[in-house]
Design a binder for these strands. Structure first.
Lengths: 258, 258
DNA sequence: AATTATTCCGTAAATTTTACGCATTGTAAA
DNA sequence: TTTACAATGCGTAAAATTTACGGAATAATT
C-alpha cells in the first residue's frame, strides 16, 4: 500500500477484502546489543508510535493472517509467533481518532460510518525474531520505524501500551515453561550470550554457572567445537540448540526455574 | 429471547445491537460428585450440543460482555472468568450451517448475507462456577442443557471440541500457578474434598498428606473449628480459603507443584 | 612477563519435594 | 457391646533439586 490511490481503495473498499471490527496487533521482540527491543512504527501524521498491526482477510485463517502481517512488515518467515490476549475493553478507542484526521493528514474524505472508524477488537500476538535478519517494510501510512528498548517505550496510540506490557509479562511467564531463544539468537551462540538474553528478558540476575548447567542438563543446547573470537580475553565456546529437544520442550513445556 | 418475534428481530436486526464477526464462547466448568463437568446446551433443531455463547454489544467492553453472557445463562455473578484463546482458523465454520436450517427449523427467511451467516471468530473464555448455585436459563434456541463429564464430551457444533480441549489444557496448566477452587467449591470444604477436586482436574493422584501440607504452608486455606458430618466414618474438619492470600496468589502467581 | 577480565568446572550447603508409618476417630457389622 | 473397617490427620526420614560460591584456566593488554 504505497500510493494514494491504493490507500483510498483500502479506506473505502477495504471492508470487502478484510474482516471489520477485528485487528491483529503484534508485539515484535528482537534482541540486540544485550537489550530487548520492540519494533514500533510511526504513523504518518498521527504523531504517534504504534504496533505494526493489520487486518484479517475474510477467508483467511487467523493464524495465517498473523504470519502474513508479520512477514509483510519484517520479511521474515522463521519466527516464533503466539497469540496472547484480545483487547476490547475500551470500545471507543478507534472512534476517538476521528475521520477528521484522515482528511487533514491525507486529504481523504472518510464517511462517519467508514469501517475503519468503527469499534475494533485487537488480537494481541507476540513475536520473537532475529533482529539481524529483519528488514522493515514501510508503507504509505508509515513514516518511520524504530526498535525501542523495552524499558523505554514511548506513549503509544490507543491503548497499545497495555498490549506491550501484557506481551512482556506473558513472555516472562512463558520463559519458565518453554524454551526461548531459538528465534532471538543467531544459530550459534555463546553461553554468555544466551545467559545475558535470559537475564535481560527476566530483568534479574541469574547465576551463570547454574544457568548453563541447567540448559545442558535439560538437553536443550549442545556444545560445539568452535569458539567465538570476541575482541579481548578468552574465546568462549559456541553452542547450538538441540532442535528436537527444543521442539519437544515447546510442545510439552518444562517445569523448572533458571 | 423467548418468543419467535424476538428471535426474528435478533436474526434480522441483531447486527445493529451486536458486533458481527465475533462471538464469545465460554466453557463453564463445575464440580459435582467428584467429577469435573462442563455445561453444554442443546440447540433446537440443530441436533447438536454446543457452548453457551453470545455476542458483544457494540458499545460494551469485552470483559463485561463475557460476564453478561455468563450471567444470563447461569444467573451467577460470583465466578472466575478468563479469556484463553481466539479461534479463527476455520473461516467457513459458520457458513456451513447455512441459512437453510433457519428456514427448515424455525420457519425464518434468512438472507444469504445475513450477519449470523458470516464468518465469525470465537473468543474462548473459561469459567469456574459453583455447580450448586447455577440455575440455567434457556431461551428460544435452546432445547435442553446438561452438565457433561469432561471425560465424556459429545461431538460439538462447529469446532467447539477444540475449544473445550484447549480450555481444559489451560485450566490444568494454570492450576500450577494460580489457586483454583474458590469458585468450584462451597465456602467451607474439607481436605478430602479439595484434594479430590485437584486430583480430578489434574487427572492424577496426589499424596493427600503432602497436598494439604502445601496448601496450609502457602497460607491459602485455614482450618475451622467445625466438622462436616459425612455419612460414615470420622467427621473431617472444615476449611476455608484465606481470601486475601488467595487474591494475592491470583495476582502474583505461585511457583510450585502439588 | 605481569596484569586483568572473563570463561567455566566442580562441590558443598540449604531447601524443597517425595514417600510413608501409624495413631486417631467415628460408623457399621458381628 | 465389641470388633472390624475405612478414612482422617500428624510427623519424620530419605531423595532430589536448587542455590551459593571457590578457584583454575585462558587470552588479550600493558
Amino acid at each position: 500500500m504505497n500510493t494514494l490511490e491504493e490507500v483510498n481503495d483500502f479506506v473505502h473498499h477495504g471492508h470487502q477484502e478484510y474482516l471489520p471490527h477485528v485487528s491483529i496487533d503484534p508485539v515484535i521482540f528482537g534482541y540486540y546489543q544485550q537489550k530487548l527491543k520492540i519494533l514500533l512504527l510511526r504513523w504518518k501524521g498521527l504523531d504517534g508510535w504504534g504496533l505494526p498491526g493489520g487486518f484479517i482477510k475474510r477467508r483467511e485463517p487467523l493464524s495465517q493472517a498473523a504470519y502474513r502481517i508479520l512477514h509483510e512488515k519484517t520479511n521474515l518467515s522463521d519466527l516464533f509467533l503466539q497469540q496472547f490476549h484480545v483487547f476490547g475493553d475500551s470500545p471507543y478507542r478507534v472512534q476517538e481518532r476521528s475521520g477528521r484526521e484522515y482528511k487533514e493528514k491525507f486529504g481523504l474524505e472518510v464517511e462517519p460510518d467508514n469501517w475503519l472508524l468503527e469499534r475494533t477488537l485487537s488480537i494481541g500476538y507476540f513475536a520473537l525474531v532475529d533482529y539481524s535478519k529483519v528488514s522493515v517494510t514501510t508503507d504509505y501510512f508509515t513514516e518511520d520505524y524504530y526498535w525501542f528498548d523495552v524499558s523505554d517505550i514511548p506513549p503509544l496510540l490507543f491503548d497499545q501500551n497495555e498490549t506491550v506490557e501484557k506481551a512482556l509479562l506473558t513472555l516472562r511467564l512463558q520463559i519458565y515453561h518453554q524454551p526461548i531463544g531459538y528465534n532471538l539468537l543467531p544459530e550459534k551462540f555463546t553461553i554468555p550470550e544466551i545467559h545475558t538474553l535470559y537475564e535481560t528478558i527476566l530483568g534479574k540476575e541469574l547465576d551463570q554457572r547454574n544457568f548453563s548447567k541447567k540448559l545442558i542438563a535439560l538437553g536443550l543446547i549442545k556444545k560445539l567445537d568452535e569458539r567465538r573470537s570476541i575482541g579481548a580475553h578468552r574465546s568462549p565456546f559456541l553452542y547450538q540448540f538441540e532442535k528436537e529437544q527444543y521442539e519437544q520442550a515447546l510442545q510439552e513445556g518444562i517445569m523448572h526455574t533458571y
